[in-house]
Design a protein around this nucleic acid. Structure first.
Length: 289
DNA sequence: TAACCGTGGAG
DNA sequence: TCTCCAAGGTT
């Protein structure tokens, strides 16, 4: 892949005009608000996050407020956002921030990375968006954009490669504030123009230099094989947890039997939920932690 | 490292 | 209807 750093200024200019007005980008945003948004946005579209994010920050405007409540409250407030383990980890992160960092979201990558549920991407994103630090912020959007503009491939590989990181690092502006804007801009381009399906090349600020467009937008091998969902343990777990989320009190096992009739799978899923700490046993009944 | 972990909207 | 996809992390 050739170096094409000259695309950076044009994408930054495009972002200055075209950025969506998202609440976690507002001038009055807090590091905690940014952190919450990053947890909620993991594998989840912006449109579904907007409402829960606002309700979450209204109820828990600081990490200590969330840390003071049982984890089950976080799981309940998470609602149907999906991957409820994120709610559990966000609660655990709030506890860790309260205990280890005096209730303030840490501003450096290493400390962020040590928090539950925070990986390389989220640590870089929070350090960048909340604190203006310079980091390589390489999410699925950026990988797709760079893969197309530079690499002429429709979809990036299933797993991040060293080549991708090297290229991304070369593009990050030296100035931290500019680097933070680049992180947001490159993600935004992938999110609203250089989309996975039906990309809007006509509105792309670097269409004239896109290797993929120049090559006639070739389709490469399917990027990933999603496992089918219906009938999986994941769907079963979701059905069981929904019962507990909507219940005010611990429920008896028969209630769960109704939610998922297949006994063997239901017991396996319930055991998994208990092991994950998403469900607790209360005598003969079950509840959120 | 490959597999697992939810949910709902778009095409 | 059904497949794909959405700001990943953990084991």
């Amino acid at each position: 892949m050739a170096k094409r750093p000259e695309v950076v200024p044009d994408i930054l200019d495009w972002y200055a005009e075209s950025a969506r007005d998202l609440p976690w980008r507002a001038a009055d945003r807090t590091p905690w608000g940014v952190l919450v948004s990053e947890f909620m946005l993991q594998q989840t579209p912006v449109s579904r996050v907007l409402r829960p994010w606002s309700a979450w920050l209204e109820r828990w405007p600081a990490p200590a407020a969330l840390a003071a409540e049982p984890a089950g409250e976080a799981i309940r407030a998470w609602g149907r956002l999906g991957y409820p383990r994120r709610a559990l980890r966000l609660h655990a992160a709030a506890v860790a921030i309260t205990e280890r960092h005096g209730g303030e979201v840490p501003d450096d990558h290493e400390a962020l990375l040590a928090l539950p549920g925070v990986g390389a991407y989220t640590a870089a994103a929070v350090a960048s968006f909340a604190f203006g630090r310079r980091h390589v912020v390489l999410d699925t959007n950026v990988r797709r954009v760079l893969g197309r503009v530079i690499g002429a491939t429709a979809y990036p590989p299933n797993h991040q490669t060293a080549t991708e990181r090297d290229l991304a690092e070369q593009l990050v502006p030296a100035d931290p504030a500019r680097a933070a804007r680049w992180a947001a801009a490159s993600m935004e381009l992938g999110a609203i123009v250089c989309t996975a399906r039906n990309p809007a090349c006509g509105r792309c600020p670097v269409a004239d230099r896109c290797a993929w467009l120049a090559a006639g937008r070739p389709d490469n091998a399917p990027p990933r094989r999603g496992q089918s969902y219906a009938g999986t343990d994941r769907q079963c777990r979701g059905a069981l947890l929904a019962v507990l989320r909507d219940a005010d009190e611990p429920v008896v096992g028969e209630r769960l039997d109704l939610a998922w009739p297949a006994a063997v799978q239901r017991e396996r899923a319930l055991a998994g939920l208990l092991a994950d700490g998403l469900v607790v046993r209360v005598g003969e009944r079950y509840a959120l932690p």
